[in-house]
């Protein structure tokens, strides 16, 4: 907090605004934009690897594995993400604690489910109840990342599965004719070529992921929507140094601008990546690039 802000009651106009916008709460609000960015940065590759695993599983020639891959994608895709978020995090948390409990306290006398309560031994708690607050917050954040990755991994699996199928069959046949094994053909021929087919779908998925982040507060993470709601609500003079009316519109307006800006930037980057990937590919886009170059 700034020095001059110690007594805000006498402030007016710009200096009031400056002090108002630098309260601890506002700093937390600004920091939460970083939380969202971090979530996106970790979730995107994680969801992509879930999707890759799902798609590879769905393609498997071993029936049970292929069934698992297909069930994962179709069930998760069939459920609205909010419904998933509302119970999945608690389920995930309990599952982790259950496993730890079984490992760490094998001779615990009491039942884990006592009526409605879910009680594990102290050593199995995640995180330990003695851990500082930031550990709890990080753990909550990691759970949110995992939930997002599982949901969006299912969508990514669907896209990648389609992309793998779109790679011309002749390419694989040629590879096999050269004596490559199934795995070699998959890793050396199929995987490098599928990205150009997958990119439009993955790009769209990235846009959906960005727009799903306002649901982060459902997962117990104090995100930008949480803080915008908290800061924008009416504040009475009794409870704050900076009383104001209902300012939700301004705070949500700021969020709107933020999201539009991120979308705009993403569109630019995706267009550029698509140009790169199309280079030298046997697609309409690749053909256009070749002609332009010639």
């Amino acid at each position: 907090m700034l020095e001059s802000c110690a007594d805000p009651s006498g402030l007016e106009g710009l200096s009031w605004l400056l002090c108002y916008l630098t309260t601890g709460k506002h700093i937390a609000f600004y920091a939460s934009f970083g939380t969202v960015a971090l979530l996106l940065a970790i979730t995107a590759p994680l969801a992509l690897s879930f999707g890759f695993a799902g798609a590879a599983a769905a393609r498997s020639r071993f029936l049970p594995v292929s069934l698992i891959g297909k069930t994962y994608t179709s069930i998760v895709r069939g459920v609205p993400d909010i419904a998933f978020f509302l119970f999945f995090v608690i389920a995930l948390d309990q599952a982790f604690e259950f496993v730890r409990h079984k490992v760490k306290c094998p001779d615990w006398p009491d039942a884990i489910r006592q009526g409605n309560d879910f009680v594990v031994c102290d050593a199995a708690k995640l995180p330990l109840s003695s851990s500082p607050q930031w550990v709890h917050e990080t753990y909550g954040f990691m759970l949110a990342v995992l939930t997002f990755a599982i949901v969006f991994g299912a969508f990514a699996a669907n896209v990648l599965y389609g992309a793998m199928k779109a790679v011309p069959r002749a390419q694989i046949e040629t590879a096999e004719a050269y004596g490559m094994s199934h795995a070699q053909a998959f890793w050396r021929i199929l995987v490098p070529q599928m990205w150009v087919y997958a990119l439009p779908g993955l790009g769209n998925l990235w846009m959906i992921l960005i727009k799903a982040t306002p649901l982060l507060f459902l997962l117990g993470v104090e995100d930008i929507v949480y803080w915008a709601r908290e800061l924008g609500g009416t504040k009475q003079a009794r409870f704050t140094d900076f009383p104001h009316g209902n300012w939700l519109v301004y705070y949500f307006g700021a969020l709107l601008v933020f999201y539009l800006f991120v979308t705009w930037g993403s569109e630019k980057v995706l267009a550029r990546v698509m140009r790169r990937l199309s280079h030298g590919q046997a697609t309409a886009g690749g053909e256009a690039l070749r002609r332009a170059g010639a």
């Binding site: 179709s74 069930i75 895709r77 069939g78 459920v79 609205p80 909010i82 419904a83 998933f84 509302l86 119970f87 608690i90 389920a91 409605n116």
Partner: peptide, 30 residues
Amino acid sequence: LYYAKYFADKTFNPFVPYPILAMYFIMLTL
């Protein structure tokens, strides 16, 4: 979702109403 939330709130158990909701939506999606 409103009713699923109502039940989750009254029974304090999210593990029944939300999966029911999920089932309905899987049917709708299909």
